[in-house]
Amino acid sequence: MVTRYTQSEKILSALSYFSVFFAPVIFPVVVWILADKPVSTHAKKSLLFHLLPYILIVISSVILGTTGSVTNQFLYVILMI
């Protein structure tokens, strides 16, 4: 089954993904809450893609911090970048 999107649905879906440049968390959340089903699905996916790097940074810093394998602070900063 082929789903046809209107022009406004296409624009809102695209803006949800491109909002990483101007409002990476706020815009997808607002679109997710206010929009209908196809657009809200894209907003939810874009929110996940925007938050995933931050979640991975926190997880990797916890792993690196608890293992004690990185003793040089400069090397730790390079790994985080």
Rank of each mutant, 00 (worst) to 15 (best):
V2M: 14
T3S: 12
T3I: 15
R4A: 05
Y5A: 03
Y5C: 01
Q7S: 13
E9P: 00
A14V: 07
L15M: 12
L15G: 02
S16D: 03
F18Y: 06
S19A: 13
V20I: 13
V20H: 08
F21Y: 03
F21M: 08
V25S: 06
I26T: 12
I26F: 10
F27T: 03
P28W: 02
P28Q: 01
P28D: 01
V29W: 05
V29F: 05
V30T: 09
V31Q: 00
W32R: 12
W32H: 08
W32N: 07
I33C: 00
L34E: 02
L34G: 02
A35N: 00
A35Q: 00
K37H: 04
P38S: 02
S40V: 03
S40W: 01
H42N: 15
K44C: 05
K44N: 09
K44L: 09
K45P: 03
K45C: 08
K45H: 13
S46P: 03
S46D: 00
S46F: 00
L48Q: 11
L48K: 10
H50E: 07
L51Y: 13
L51P: 11
L51F: 13
L51R: 08
L52R: 09
P53D: 05
Y54N: 14
Y54Q: 13
Y54S: 10
Y54A: 10
I55Q: 04
V58M: 09
V58L: 11
V58S: 06
V58P: 01
I59T: 11
I59C: 07
S60D: 10
S60P: 13
S61D: 09
S61Y: 14
G65C: 08
G65T: 07
G65I: 09
T66H: 06
S69C: 15
S69T: 15
V70D: 04
V70C: 10
V70L: 14
T71F: 12
Q73Y: 14
Q73A: 15
Y76H: 15
Y76M: 14
I78T: 09
M80K: 05
I81N: 09
